[in-house]
Design a binder for these strands. Structure first.
Lengths: 235, 235
DNA sequence: ATGTGTCAACTAACATGTTAGTATGTTCAG
DNA sequence: CTGAACATACTAACATGTTAGTTGACACAT
């Protein structure tokens, strides 16, 4: 079993700020979320230390954090691996995400200001440009920002943070969908519906539009279990 | 400034299982949630090590976890304190809890089985007995179990876990409310409404009943900011 | 050929030594 | 007496040495 003894595809520590542990955490998380380290990859503390030029303490702390977020599975005294997807976990994350985003958009529809609407409209225009240019990665980012902006408009920082924590698995799975471009136009239309409902300050319409939009994702993720069966837990 | 150099009121490690770090985490978390260590208490790694008879590594890992959950504030290179309440954080937690519990109860109303209804009814009868006996602590526990059971009926383990993580601050604040007993009967009635809606498998009624019930908590917490002002962040 | 027991190598977990940043208390200038 | 510069003591953060548990290979018995 000659499993990937080469270097792990990790970014560099230097570019970041904060404690060493925090920087190591960021670097590892990015590698996992962007599928640089696919599910099942074995992470060895020693190797990470050597490669990043740090000692084991900050690496241990970073891995503990990733373990709490279920991005890695630690086998005590033995090994730690990048966790595989579990369809049931993904369905859970979908449920949680929907619960939070619907509550948020419902609230925001009642409180949104003109400035916030303009910022959202600006982001939406950007999305349209990116779709027209065929820049899928750019649209992906703008899409995420659209949702994040709405979360932020609740006035609760913690909502965005909690949602991010909850939908880590979801974000990772979404990366697998990037190649398929055909959904961008539909997604755009759905965002427009959400935006219109917010413009009209209609909580029910906003909720329904967002519910429909979010509902599209899970049906696109489910086929992945067959397509990338080695990334998923055996069920 | 002679701040509490005496022993911290911590439980014992021996009684628990799992890794040392996990056990230290549990002991500290209990002490914080049950207000054995009130907000503002300074936690010194060295003291904790000595008292629990472990080295600094597991303590550091436990504190990192508590820090991620915002139960302690770590001042880099200086000190770590049990975090004070922040009313805005509590409002956030209320929002998150409501979002999750409403989504859960709405879903459960559509899927609940006879067995699950019976289990819930059994818990409800227990609640009534405890209220009649004036056992507030017992009612507090049964109350929590009532909500946890409903979460569990979603079939998603992660929902319960996420909610627990989100409402740690809320749980801690609720401890301050324990002395005031007068709400028990009302709470009981509200639980009954939720239970009835679930019996009728009516998602909308269940949602409304739960929303009303949860809405009572925040209005009881808000006065605490004056009553225990030293436990709260200055605003 | 297959199942079992032993052993060696490797890993995470834990303990402890070292470094660097922060706060406090003191001294000295104004 | 007051305020700022400095020295000291203390803390968390980081590095490294040590321990113990798990895995997988191999020998051996069936």
């Amino acid at each position: 079993m000659v499993e990937a003894l080469e270097k792990l595809p990790l970014g560099d520590i230097e570019a970041l700020s904060g404690s060493l542990a925090q920087r190591v955490y960021i670097v590892l998380r990015e590698a996992i979320l962007h599928m640089k380290c696919p599910p099942g990859t074995v992470l060895r503390k020693g190797q990470i230390c050597e490669q990043l030029g740090v000692s084991r303490s900050p690496v241990a702390e970073a891995i503990a954090k990733l373990s709490a977020e279920r991005l890695v599975d630690v086998v005590p005294q033995s090994a730690t691996r990048v966790s595989r997807f579990s369809m049931s976990e993904i369905r859970e994350a979908t449920f949680l995400r929907e619960a939070l985003e619907l509550a948020a958009v419902e609230r925001v529809a009642q409180t949104i200001t003109e400035d916030q609407l303009m910022a959202l409209a600006r982001n939406f225009k950007l999305q349209r440009l990116l779709v027209e240019d065929g820049d899928h990665a750019g649209f992906f980012a703008a899409d995420e920002e659209f949702h994040t902006m709405i979360m932020g408009f609740t006035g609760y920082q913690g909502v965005t943070r909690t949602l991010a924590g909850v939908s880590l698995q979801l974000s990772r799975a979404r990366i697998l969908l990037l190649p398929s471009t055909d959904r961008a136009e539909e997604s755009l239309r759905e965002h427009e519906e959400v935006l219109d409902a917010l413009r009209q300050r209609d909580p029910v319409a906003a909720r329904n539009a967002m519910r429909f939009h979010l509902g599209q994702l899970i049906s696109r993720i489910e086929p992945l279990e067959q397509k990338h069966s080695d990334f998923f837990i055996a069920h």
